[in-house]
């Protein structure tokens, strides 16, 4: 995606001058962020740079002291992850927020179950298990997760990568506008990480923009279209991974080198 294209496109998600203090500690100091349609925006930063506070503000877990968030050009406010999710901002948490003892289907529809039609559903509130299973299977195969054979198997019987797959499938299934992924490969082995990176590509190809937070530079450089570097509570710069080296990014991040002035 070139620079010219970005300037004419309206960003999906904009954060303007977000600030957050914890006592005397400034976690966010007038931080900005823009996410454009169909891109993967990597967010990197040293420990304590405030990137996790930034992400928590965007997903509704932390309420900022000041600043505003625009979604599709409209100002939005939310006080919990549930409210953010209702507006279309889905988060895949580092711990995935899945219930291991429930099935894949149950997990994908947790909190937004499909009820049966007619009396059984409206009065007795019976679930339409078949519709949910069909939909869950469709979502998973759309994302290329065909290795999961039985949609009713318990999540605890899945591997780490497959669990990540279920969490991503859930996050992209309900009219989602933005997906935030927090350290999706941190707990995974090499092979599984590869699949998650493919999964990120799959989600992007379906037009859903992703904010990817990760400590793993090679992963970020591989899948991100742009990289937002966070330093001292604010956005230091945004770089194009094709034009910058990984070592440059680390140098900007730690303050060893001045960022490019463009």
């Amino acid at each position: 995606m070139d620079k010219k294209g970005l300037s004419v496109m309206q960003p999906v998600l904009v954060a303007k001058k977000l600030s957050k203090k914890y006592g005397k500690v400034v976690a966010l100091d007038s931080a900005d962020l823009e996410l454009y349609p169909g891109e993967v925006l990597g967010v990197i930063g040293d420990n304590g740079a405030g990137k996790s506070t930034l992400i928590k503000v965007l997903c509704g877990a932390v309420i900022p002291d000041s600043g505003e968030i625009l979604l599709d050009g409209n100002k939005v406010t939310f006080t919990s992850p549930i409210e953010a999710r209702k507006l279309g901002i889905e988060t895949v948490y580092q711990n995935l927020a899945l219930s291991p003892a429930l099935s894949i289907t149950d997990n994908m529809f947790l909190g937004r179950e499909i009820r049966q039609k007619g009396f059984m559903g409206s009065f007795l509130k019976f679930l339409d298990k078949k519709a949910m299973a069909d939909e869950a299977r469709k979502r998973l195969s759309d994302l290329g997760l065909l290795t999961i054979q039985n949609i009713n198997q318990l999540v605890e019987t899945l591997s780490g990568g497959q669990r990540q797959g279920v969490a991503v499938a859930r996050a992209t299934s309900f009219g989602t506008k933005v997906v935030i992924m927090d350290e999706p490969t941190a707990a995974l082995g090499v092979k599984e990480s590869r699949r998650v990176l493919e999964l990120i590509g799959e989600v992007r190809s379906r037009g859903i923009p992703i904010i990817l937070i990760s400590h793993n530079m090679p992963h970020v450089f591989e899948v991100a279209d742009r990289i937002h570097i966070h330093r001292l509570g604010t956005r230091l710069c945004v770089i194009d991974p094709k034009k910058h080296e990984m070592s440059d990014a680390v140098a900007y991040m730690t303050g060893a080198k001045q960022p490019p002035q463009d």
Binding site: N95, A97, S99, P100, A101, L102, D106, L110, G111, R112
Partner: peptide
């Protein structure tokens, strides 16, 4: 879901 992992249930809405 609540008995399994209350925090996950909360985050699931």
């Amino acid at each position: 879901a609540i008995g399994d992992d209350k925090e996950a249930a909360e985050l699931s809405g």
